[in-house]
Write a protein that binds this DNA or RNA. Structure first.
Length: 467
DNA sequence: TGAAATGTTGGGGCG
DNA sequence: ACGCCCCAACATTTC
């Protein structure tokens, strides 16, 4: 064909882009198009942080396109309307896009494919969810057999190189990439493919070999922090999995091998939740476990706001929530702790937390975020049992042993001695004065007593659960 | 990818 | 030397 559109959605990269590669294979001229979809941008599952990251990512992509003789066409509106107009006015014969498995995307794409020549190509995950089913065709709902199958599949294909040159794009009208909204004040995530690839290569060069030991430590940078880049496809899942394979060739010690395998496992968790959402789209909004759809939530709006603001009186919870707001990212261990606190200590519906995380996180992904929340709430596939209640004090002591994480994000506690840092209300009044932190004035008293809350949530879940 | 409650063991102080 | 108690330390069970 002569002209095709590369419809960019969550694949803001030129390297290892199977949709772009297929468009280039089939067409002489490829028009890169991104559509600002009001239906998505105004959703309450989107917030300014990720929008700003998206717009910066588009700017970076446009730069890369121009360097190769192409350009980015930015339009706004309902995708079907926009694409129809583009096709009619420019004799476009094909539209190529990376398949997206979220319910909204599936519905949108099915409707478009009825009337327009849309071809979907795999790429959001390494393997298509349809490939990751049991012998009888049923999807997996337990992670362990899923990961066993994932690892047994033919080796991950090597990623595609970015094309050196791209065809010239006809003169088409294009919007300016918005400069609003602004970034979280302390975000360290620079958008764009070059940054993503640099971070990946840094990570597999050394930190990956320590990953098994350091990944749970909130006070260290033990994780790859690649999730925002995977979210918008500045890095492909295949590039990440391929890099892990390369790293495993250099893993000489047991620790190093464990590090690589543990990190790969996290990538497979991402594929697992993508497959869950693909096969069970109702999990967006409904507990996977039928027996846990009637939990008597308290949903106290005051408590919810305290949680959002990082003012619960539990230092590790507050540190994490403030990190989220300030940077658009939160350590995974901290995500589990804050999610457990919201659902189990405060007895607030996991959907409230899911939505807030989607609004705040640069990496907010409908599948992974939903999977994580349902896991913690105990309502999901292969989820934590309902009686697994995190103790925020013990979690802080274990995974922030020197308290550097808490001190970084909750500066009013900076002078509190280590022993009482995770439970500052236990400081004698004399000590509170000495360290300049009166509990109840300079830092909140705990909004709930954990021991009481634990008993309460076990009661609330009891009888709701059959297992 | 928990934590609390309960049970067991074994060393040491002490009469 | 012996029995008794206390209580860490560790293991198991329960939520």
């Amino acid at each position: 064909m002569d002209r095709a559109i590369w419809w960019i959605r969550r694949d803001l990269r030129l390297s290892d882009n199977q949709a772009l590669a297929e468009a280039l294979r089939q067409a002489n001229t490829v028009i890169p198009v991104f559509i600002l979809d009001p239906g998505l941008l105004s959703s309450d599952f989107v917030g300014p942080a990720r929008l700003a990251f998206l717009f910066d990512g588009l700017r970076a992509l446009e730069t890369s396109l121009r360097e190769r003789g192409s350009r980015l066409i930015l339009r706004e509106g309902d995708p079907f309307t926009v694409l129809s107009a583009l096709c009619n006015e420019n004799q476009v014969e094909g539209i190529f896009a990376e398949e997206d498995y979220s319910p909204y995307a599936i519905q949108r794409d099915e409707k478009i494919a009825l009337n327009l020549p849309l071809q979907l190509v795999n790429g959001v995950t390494v393997y298509h969810p349809e490939m990751l089913c049991k012998a009888n065709g049923e999807p997996y709902t337990v992670f362990t057999p899923f990961t066993r199958l994932w690892r047994s599949l033919p080796a991950v294909a090597s990623p595609l190189a970015a094309p050196d040159r791209l065809p010239t794009v006809p003169e088409l009208q294009s919007l300016e990439i918005p400069t609003q909204p602004s970034h979280p004040s302390e975000s360290t995530f620079r958008a764009g493919e070059p940054e993503a690839q640099k971070r990946l290569s840094n990570f597999i060069n050394l930190p990956i070999f320590e990953y098994a030991n350091t990944r749970n430590r909130m006070d260290l940078e033990g994780t790859s922090q690649l999730s925002p880049y995977l979210r918008l496809g500045m890095l492909s899942a295949r590039q990440a999995a391929w890099a892990a394979r390369q790293a495993s060739d250099f893993a000489m010690t047991t620790t190093a091998r464990e590090g690589v395998e543990t990190w790969l496992n996290e990538l497979i968790w991402r594929e697992f939740y993508a497959a869950i959402l693909y096969h069970f789209p109702f999990v967006r909004g409904t507990a996977f476990k039928e027996a846990l759809r009637q939990i008597p939530w308290l949903n106290d709006p005051v408590a919810l706001n305290a949680w959002k603001a990082g003012l619960t009186g539990y230092p590790v919870v507050d540190a994490a929530m403030r990190q989220l707001k300030a940077t658009g990212w939160m350590h995974n261990r901290a995500r589990m702790i804050t999610a457990s606190f919201l659902t189990k200590d405060l007895l607030i519906d996991w959907r409230e937390g899911e939505r807030f995380f989607m609004q705040q996180l640069l990496d907010g992904d409908p599948a992974s975020n939903n999977g994580g929340w349902q896991w913690t709430a105990g309502t999901g596939t292969d989820a934590a049992p309902y009686f697994r209640v995190f103790n925020p004090i013990l979690q802080g002591q274990k995974f922030d042993p020197q308290g550097n994480y808490v001190r970084r994000w909750v500066p009013e506690l900076a002078q509190v001695p280590n022993k009482l840092l995770q439970s500052p209300w236990e400081m004698p009044l004399e000590m509170q004065k000495q360290v300049g932190c009166l509990v109840g004035r300079d830092y909140p008293a705990p909004i709930v007593d954990h021991a009481m809350a634990r008993k309460r949530v076990l009661q609330a879940y009891k009888g709701q659960s059959v297992d």
